[in-house]
Amino acid sequence: MSQTSNIEMHNPASSKKMLMAMVGIGIISAFLIVMTFELTLPRVQRLKAEALEKAILEVLPGTVRTQAFGVSTNGELVKIEEGDKTETTLYAGYDKDEMLVGYAIEAAGQGYADIIRILYGYDPDEQKLIGFQVLESKETPGLGDKIEKDEGFLNNFKALDVSVSEDGKLRNKVITVKQGEKQNPWEIDGITGATISSRAIGNIVGTSTTEVVPILYQEHKKDKTSQGQKQMESDEQR
C-alpha cells in the first residue's frame, strides 16, 4: 500500500481527535471565563458602589447619610433598596443634623465615543446644581475626557440655574454654548477641542433636569410645608 493511501486512512481519526481536543479546550476556557466572572463580580460591584458613594459626597458636600430613591410612573419619589432597578435613580443626602443637603441624580446619554454616565448635585432650596461628576466615559483621551478634568468646565456646575416656574416646569432648559459665549446662569460654557463631548453633557443634564428637578422641587416644597405645620402645632401646644 502506498504512503499516500496510509495518510488517507489515518486522517479521519486524527481529525476527530483534533476536533475533540478543540471542543474540550473550548469548554474549559468557557468554564474558566464564567468562574473568573463569578469570582470577580462581587469585587467589581463593591468598587462601583465605593466610587458612587465617593461621587455623591463630591457633588453634595456635607453629606453624611444617603437614601436612594426612584421615580414612579406617576412622578412620585419612592424609596428603593440596594439591588432594586429603576429607570431614574437618585440619592437624598443628609448632614449630621439630618437636614437635607440636596439630591445626587444619576443620568446618562450618548457621547462622542459611547454612553456617558454622570452624577450631578441639586439643591432644591437654591434651585441650582451644585456639583458634577463623570461616573463612566470612553471619550477620547486628551480631548473628550476634558469633561472630567477641565476646571473651567466643572465650575459650570457649582451654581447652574435650574429654577422651576409657577406652572411646575423648568424655567430654562440647560444647554451648552461655545466656550466664552455663556451669558445666562442656565448655560454651560463648553470646551474648545471637546465640543461634541461638552455638548453631550449639556444634552444629558438638560434632559434629566427637565424631567427630574420639577418632581424634586415639588416634593421638597411639600416636605417644608409639612414641617412648618408641625412646628406651628408644636408651638401652639407650648
Rank of each mutant, 00 (worst) to 15 (best):
D189Y: 06
S14T: 15
G202F: 07
T140L: 06
Q237G: 06
F132R: 07
G206C: 03
E219F: 04
T207W: 08
D189I: 10
Q237S: 12
S137M: 08
A21D: 12
T195K: 11
S2Q: 09
H10Y: 13
L129D: 02
N156A: 05
P214F: 03
T36M: 14
N11S: 13
M20D: 11
G144A: 05
E187M: 11
Q67Y: 00
T176N: 12
T40V: 15
Q45L: 15
I7V: 14
G142T: 09
A159Y: 10
L135F: 01
I204F: 05
L154Y: 00
G83R: 13
E38G: 00
I116W: 05
E136G: 01
E53P: 04
E76C: 06
D123E: 02
L39S: 13
K85T: 02
I28E: 04
A113I: 14
I175A: 08
L135H: 00
N156L: 06
K178T: 14
I115K: 11
E87M: 10
R46I: 03
D235Q: 12
Q110E: 15
P185W: 02
F69Y: 15
D145Q: 04
E53G: 09
A13R: 13
A49N: 07
V78Q: 14
H220L: 00
Q3P: 07
H220Q: 02
V34R: 02
M22I: 15
S165H: 12
D223N: 13
I28Y: 10
S234I: 04
I25F: 15
T88Y: 06
G152E: 03
L143T: 05
S208E: 04
A49F: 05
N6E: 15
F37M: 12
E181Y: 11
Q67S: 12
I118C: 10
K169H: 11
I116R: 01
D114G: 05
Q231W: 11
E82F: 10
E187A: 01
Y103I: 00
R43H: 05
K48I: 01
Y103D: 01
G62I: 09
G190C: 07
V134M: 06
E76V: 05
K16Y: 10
P12A: 09
M22Y: 09
R199W: 05
M20I: 15
V213A: 06
D97W: 11
E148H: 00
S5C: 07
K169Q: 14
E139G: 12
D150I: 10
E50V: 09
V162W: 00
D145I: 02
L41C: 01
G109V: 07
F31R: 07
K173P: 06
G131F: 05
K85V: 11
E53Y: 04
S29T: 13
K138E: 13
G131C: 00
